[in-house]
């Protein structure tokens, strides 16, 4: 079968056509400022029809602490070739804002092999805090202070902020991005583009509101939120995240991991091929 390119940037309609959208989880009185958890399927694309691969998943959980504070937990999994896996967990106390900014956090990265054994030398724990407007990071026995301009946020705490933004054309939300609690990316901005009605086939009909995210060090993101302010889809170049049922996302990633274990075992038996 010959490969054909998709040719135009992803949007929810194209993702539906590509078979990437199933019915979204029920909205059930979603309160962006309340307590909630969400799971996203992480998909990488080659730009050809039918060549998208779910390689990871992200779980995020918001818990209110006070009117101006919340706890934000993230679990990020990526399965790599031959069933190696990188898991990142972060637990942050954040200050409410546009965008919300972490005040104190822990961040742990672990790498696992095909047998799910954790590679001890590839385990890295970070503790960070914001004090008097300055960020201080402790990595293993070392400390450093990244130069971040306020407001700043991280790529997944931003998901929380997006879901609390009003659907209104307003001055751009500007911030620094502290990606992966590690990389400073400046001059970020969020721009509201308005609503558009989508027929997403199996995933139903939705009026989706789009925010664009531009800035240095990122390929532009486009975020699509439903009328309840739930972030359903995030797209950046050839990667996208889709709000998913937690069990289904987990099963998808486990299936991918199983396939990679198969690849690993085959390659071990056939090292020259």
């Amino acid at each position: 079968m010959s490969r054909t390119i998709i040719g135009t940037p992803f949007d929810p309609a194209i993702l539906a056509t590509e078979g990437e959208l199933a019915p979204f989880p029920e909205a059930a009185a979603f309160d962006p400022a309340g307590n909630w958890s969400q799971t996203y399927r992480l998909v990488g694309a080659r730009g050809f029809h039918g060549e998208n691969t779910a390689v990871g998943m992200i779980r995020i959980k918001r818990t209110s602490i006070a009117d101006d504070r919340f706890r934000f937990e993230t679990e990020y999994r990526v399965v790599l070739q031959e069933a190696m896996e990188n898991r990142v967990t972060a637990d942050a106390e954040c200050r409410v804002g546009h965008p919300a900014t972490p005040l104190a956090w822990t961040h742990l990265s672990e790498h696992r092999g095909p047998e799910q054994n954790v590679a001890s030398r590839l385990r890295l724990k970070q503790r960070g805090e914001t004090h008097n407007g300055r960020v201080k990071i402790r990595l293993d026995r070392h400390t450093y202070q990244p130069e971040l301009s306020n407001p700043w946020t991280t790529e997944f705490v931003l998901f929380e902020s997006l879901q609390r933004l009003p659907f209104a054309v307003a001055p751009h939300v500007r911030f620094d991005l502290f990606e992966d609690f590690s990389m400073v990316k400046r001059n970020q901005r969020l721009i509201y583009r308005g609503p558009r009605d989508f027929d997403l086939g199996e995933a139903g009909e939705h009026r989706l509101h789009r925010f664009d995210h531009l800035g240095s060090g990122i390929v532009p993101f486009e975020y699509y939120l439903d009328e309840a302010h739930r972030l359903l889809v995030a797209i950046s170049g050839n990667k996208f995240l889709v709000l998913d049922d937690d069990e289904r996302a987990h099963a998808t990633i486990e299936a991918f991991r199983e396939r990679q274990i198969g690849t690993y075992n085959w390659r071990q038996r056939n090292p020259a091929e």
Partner: peptide, 28 residues
């Protein structure tokens, strides 16, 4: 080999490589 990656999606698989390199340097 400390970590592998995946073809065609450096967006997703370069960060795990950098995390592994960082961790190895701090742990060694």
């Amino acid at each position: 080999v400390l970590t592998t990656g995946l073809g065609g999606i450096g967006y997703i698989t370069d960060p795990p490589a950098a995390r592994a390199a960082e961790a190895w340097l701090y742990q060694t």
